[in-house]
Each structure stands twice: as C-alpha cells, then as structure tokens.
Design a protein around this nucleic acid. Structure first.
Lengths: 332, 332
DNA sequence: CTGAAAGCGCTTACAG
DNA sequence: CTGAAAGCGCTTACAG
C-alpha cells in the first residue's frame, strides 16, 4: 500500500535516495540508509514490481513453455528448470501448451520483452519464422529437448538411443524385435521417429530384415500402445521383444502382455525409453535420458545468456544410458 | 519495439484513441478503428505489459505455490490449475517450494498486489499471520488441499478416507492391519495424520485393539516406506494388510513385499491413497481423491473471486472413492 | 552523498 | 467520437 514517495517523505529524503537504498547503491550515507530502512520496515513497504519493471525495462521473468500433460518426461524436465531458477532472481511463468493452436498463440505472444525477459521451450520445435521474430525482439531463448540451428539447445541423440535399445535386445538373442512408437505429432516432435531410425539401423547392422507389421505407431499414450501390442501379439509370428519409444508406451506394452498371458521377460522382453519414475516401479528396462538434468542445464544456459554471455547456437548433447532391469531377458 | 505513441503518430490520432482501440472501447469511429488497427498490424505493435500493469494496477497474473517435487499428487493438482487458467486471461507464475525457508520467503513476498493479482496455494497450510497480511493486501486466495477458517479452500475428508481404506481391509477379514505414513512435516501437512486417525477409528469400531508397532511413520517417500515395511514384515506377528497414507508410499510397500518374497495379495494386502497414475500401472487398490479436479475447482473459485464475487470462507469438500484393484484380497 | 526531474508506456477521467 | 494531460510508482542520469 505504501509507495516510495511516502517512504521518502517519512524518512525526510528524496525518492531517489530511497530507490538507491532499495537497490543497494553504495553511495548512500550509512546514517541515511539506516533511517530509510527503518521507515521501510515500519511502513511494511514493498516496491511495486510493475513500476520497477516499466522503468527498468526488465521483468525478472522467464517464460517456460511446455506440453504439460502430454508426457511424464516433460514434467521431469520442468522440475529441473524450476529447481534451478528458484535460486535465481527470475520468476517462472508457465505456459502449458496442449493444442497446436495454443502453441501458436503462446509462442507468438511471447516474442515480447515487456512480459518476459527470456524464453525456455521444452519439447517443442520452433519454426524459423518464430525464431526470427524472437531474435528481432532480442529475446534470449533456450530449447530443451529441441533443436534449432540458430538457438542454443539441450538434447540427446535419439538415433543412438534407439540403436542402444535395439542392440540390447539383439544381444539377448532376439530376432523378432518390434517397435511401438508415436505417429508424427502436430507439434512436430521427431524423437520417436529418430529412435525408430536407430532401431532399424541396429537391425540392419545385425543382418535382420525388417518385417512388415513389426513397426507400429499411434498418437502418444499408454492406452494406444497397449492396443498396438495386442495386435503385435496376435500376429502369426509375434515378436519376442518390443522396443517402445517411451516408458509411458512401454507401460502399455506390459499391460497388453499381462492381459495376453505372456510372461515378461520369459515370453516377451520389453524395453522403454526415458526412465521416468514409474519405470523403476515396474522394473522396466529402459534407455535413460537425463530429463531433470536437461531442464537444469537449459535453465543454466538461459541464465548465462541473461547475464550477458553470448551463447551462440550451441547444442549440448546429454549422455544416454542403458538401464537393464527385469523386463528383458535372453530369447527362448 | 514500437510504442503506443508511434502508433498514434502514424495513424494520425492521439494515444488515447489507440488505447481505446486496444481495449475494445466501443466509442471509437469505425473508420478510425480500422486505420489504427492497420498501423498496429504494419508496425507489429504489442502493448507493453509492464506499462499496462502499472497504469491499471493489475498484473493479470496468478501466483501458484506448490511443493513440487514432494509428491506426485501435487503435480496432478497443478495440472488441474494450469488447465483451467489457460483459458482465462491470467498468467501463472509458479513458485516451487521445497524448503520451509523458501516457503516463508515466497509466501511473505507474495502478499504484494503489484506482482500478482491472486494467490493459489497447493498442499501447504497457511499461518494466521500470513492470512492476515494477505487479507490486508486485499489479495484473493484459494487453498487447494489445505484448510483455513477464513480462506476459501478445496479439500477432502482425510479421516473418512482413512476409515474407508481400513474398513475395506477389515471387510476382507484382515485383523492384523498396519499403517505406513508420514512424520509431521516442517510445512505442517496433516493429511497423513488424519488418515491414520480414520484408520484407528475403523479398527476401534471393529473391536480390534491397536497393536504396538503397527503404526509406522517416516518422512514422505517411497524408499522410507519400503524400509518401514521391511520392519513390519520382520515382526513376530507381521501384518496381513497394510494401509499406506499415499500411493507413493504404497509403491514402497509393494517393493518391500516383493523383496521379502511375500505374494501380494495372497500373503499381504496393500492399499494406498490418492490414485496417482502409477497406481493403475501396478494395479494398486487405493482410495481415490480427485487430484486434478481439486486444482481445477480451486482455479475456478479464484477466477470467481477475481471477477468480484465475494466467496467467503467456503470450504469445498470433494468426494473420495474406494478403488479396488489387484493388491487387496480376503485374508488367509 | 543527495535531490529534483525526466522518463518508462500505458490508461482514464475530463473537456470538448 | 477524440485529444491533451495527469497519473501509475519506480529508476537514473544530471547537478550540486
């Protein structure tokens, strides 16, 4: 309720001096500072963020865009971002993008320095036109789980990850290895496709011909993965192993296996991707990608950019790791 | 980059007129409006949020405080909040509170109309002094999964929920029923205690004397729940059923049972609380509380308050539901 | 070390 | 229907 003018009045100084005290400017006499601080305390004065933002031209705010409900992994990345930003002086404004329409609105509105100082985008590709507009607005950006030639980003090598998963199954003697993944999304994700490419490359390298019907895709989600698996298990020659493009989908695969009376891993090996928390609940073998760390690193990069460091179009690639638990075993 | 003054200049009008066009004020001639809109379009003009906030005295921002990593259920509530607020004109500023220290800082800083218009607090009790200060700042507040005499809130009846869980186990013929829950937290949560109270009441009603050592508490988390269960299972007379105060803890219970070679539900029945997504993965019986809906309803209440409706200290109590899956069965 | 004043970019009575 | 001007509450050169 109190304003800087009232504080100045009560302390018998000018507003400029109060402002200097507020901002830790050293050129204020100790006696004056003490007096001003006492008045601030007494009046329970808090500077208006809105006024400060306007006059400084900064908002101390970072906009974080994330497709929230879409995947458990996005939440994990967000945690990394929020944890890191908490110790900074920046606030996090959360934009949850579900529909492509919302995505477009949000991204276009965000190219606006008056509402946030910087932009962190999780698991959402940016179009060239959008990047251009953001650059024009001189808005620092970092992409987490996204890639763009002109924007700093944090990713993993999904193709290598797909290879890793498939090779694990091949090493266990499996030859009938199927893939369950995502259809192309309206947002333009490519992770699932990249993982499939890695899977196919690994099979090729092992001299195994691709089988028709062994690659299944549907919109992301456990339920549809379950259904695709039902179809796979009903084939004349069903797979002995399945690589799911995400742990969420692997959970659907496990569900279908259980419903079909297939013992995992005796009858069917299953491997996922991500290592979300639920993966360890069900002892799922998977390819771990550092989700939390990706958010953490992305936030750090952004803070560095806000600190004035020119990041350039750097891409940080985080390491993947095969995590063998109880859902994969030797074939036969 | 463009300002309202430049738009006005280019359109040959005053800034007031541009402002009126921006805000949909009807008293602008159609011709003028068209001309102004054309200039806005051409200059790619976007009003400065900071300037608007300062002059309107509102920020179009809702601060959401949530103990984020602490529990899967908090994330689910947050989803409900964010989903509902997305279709409003309000932005969500996320405050993730992990340490009690952070909690205090955040809550005290938040009593400030210049940085947000309203406050939504998830799973965090508010102290009287804090409520008083918030009221003084005339800041609308809603508590989700919290209770306070003077603040609108959304909760469930945890005592009744505890009863529901225990009675389910009793109905199945169990007499040696243990409880695994949380120690009092520095934040002052009481859900676990309330659920335990319900559990104890149900046992009492059934004429079953409380057994020493059957009630175990530790800080929230799967791992510690696992350890407590190990101890329970090592008792001379181990329980035949365990009620965990949350699904997260129930997952730890299941882990311990598996490690100890106890078949669930043949040797041990397990029931949780919450019905987080992972519960269905592992076929966990549980008491479902509407997590997403609690966030959704909380956000709606807050929007109503922001719309000028006086809410009063209403408390909305959502319904609980027993969900029987595969981890509970008849005793013996 | 400090004050007076301009400026940040909007909104909104107030006149006309 | 529209313009000129005050006001929102800070920050920051500019003088002194």
């Amino acid at each position: 309720l109190a304003t800087i003018a009232e504080v100045a009045e009560h302390a018998g100084v000018g507003v400029g001096t109060v402002s200097r005290v507020l901002n830790g400017d050293p050129r204020v006499a100790d006696a004056t500072r003490t007096r001003v601080l006492a008045v601030i305390e007494r009046l329970d004065y808090r500077p208006s963020a809105a006024a400060r933002n306007l006059s400084r031209g900064r908002t101390q705010t970072i906009a974080v865009v994330v497709p929230f409900l879409t995947s458990a992994s996005a939440v994990e990345r967000l945690r990394g971002v929020v944890d890191t930003l908490r110790d900074s002086s920046y606030h996090v404004v959360l934009f949850d993008v579900e529909r492509p329409q919302t995505r477009d609105d949000v991204v276009s509105r965000l190219a606006d320095r008056s509402s946030s100082d910087a932009l962190l985008v999780i698991s959402l590709p940016l179009r060239d036109a959008e990047v251009a507009r953001l650059e024009r607005a001189r808005m620092p950006i970092v992409l987490v789980d996204g890639r763009h030639g002109r924007v700093p980003h944090v990713t993993v090598d999904d193709v290598a990850g797909g290879r890793l998963a498939a090779r694990h199954l091949l090493d266990l003697g499996h030859e009938r290895v199927a893939f369950v993944g995502d259809t192309p999304t309206p947002f333009g994700f490519t992770s699932s496709d990249d993982r499939r490419a890695g899977y196919e490359a690994a099979l090729r390298d092992a001299g195994i011909a691709p089988r028709p019907g062994y690659v299944r895709v549907a919109p992301h989600g456990r339920e549809l993965a379950r259904r695709m698996t039902c179809e796979l298990l009903a084939l004349d020659e069903p797979p002995t192993a399945i690589f799911a493009a995400s742990d969420t989908q692997a959970l659907g695969v496990l569900e279908a296996a259980r419903a079909a009376g297939r013992d995992v891993p005796a009858d069917l090996s299953v491997i996922g991707f991500d290592d979300i928390e639920a993966a360890s609940y069900v002892q799922l073998s998977t390819v771990r990608q550092p989700l939390y760390e990706s958010g953490d690193l992305g936030a750090r990069l952004l803070l560095r950019a806000l600190g004035g460091t020119e990041l350039g179009p750097v891409g940080e690639t985080l390491a993947l790791e095969l995590v063998v638990r109880a859902t994969t075993a030797r074939c036969g």
